[in-house]
Design a protein around this nucleic acid. Structure first.
Length: 184
DNA sequence: GTATCGATGATCT
DNA sequence: GATCATCGATACC
């Protein structure tokens, strides 16, 4: 398990270090291959305009989940990070490892590449919903395991943003077939 | 491989 | 009333 101190560091450093980390919910999940960082001074962040009802977990202690609904139909999972309140890392893609049958059933596809290759997809595959909002990441149903080896990290601009679209805070495993989108 | 579009509803101004 | 940290289908290259 990753200790709370892992998350209580600069959010961009944590984002980089999350590549290769194992993420499991009730034993189902895989290795993180793509993330994005958001800090409170970032116009694209939900925390930019200060605390609201929705973003409350971002201003709580690091090492907890921030789960929100986007476009009225998908869930997105973030890890609350940083030394200062209001920072988080969006988990964008996993390499499926454990519970592939379960994930395939929840996603309605047999294609490995379509199970967790996007923030909304991996939440559906791991059954992450608002029920996990604010939950600690070092207690069930969550389980996080350290990256087995040093990773070759790709860097790029974040996806789907209209604000701060040029900030290069998207990180991923070089060459992974399980990314939401290739790095350029 | 990339581009565009519609679905769909909570959140915030 | 506008805005989305998305997905899947379709079209095209």
């Amino acid at each position: 398990m990753l200790p709370p101190a892992f998350f209580a560091r600069d959010v961009v450093a944590v984002a980089r270090d999350l590549i290769g980390v194992g993420l499991f919910v009730d034993g189902v999940g895989g290795l993180i291959v793509e993330v994005e960082a958001y800090d409170p001074f970032d116009p694209a962040s939900h925390a930019f305009n200060g605390p609201t009802k929705r973003n409350a977990p971002m201003f709580g202690p690091p090492g907890h989940a921030y789960v929100y609904r986007i476009y009225g139909m998908h869930w997105c999972l973030n890890f609350v990070c940083g030394e200062q309140p209001g920072s988080a890392v969006l988990i964008r893609a996993l390499e499926p490892a454990v519970g592939i049958e379960t994930m395939a059933e929840r996603r309605g596809t047999g294609s490995l590449k379509l199970l967790c290759s996007g923030p909304g997809k991996l939440c559906q595959a791991l059954s992450v919903t608002g029920a996990q909002n604010g939950a600690a990441l070092d207690t069930p149903p969550f389980a996080l395991t350290p990256a087995p080896a040093a990773e070759d990290i790709a860097v790029g601009v974040r996806i789907g943003l209209t604000k701060a679209a040029e900030t290069p805070w998207r990180f991923g495993r070089v060459g992974s077939p399980y990314l939401s989108k290739p790095f350029r």
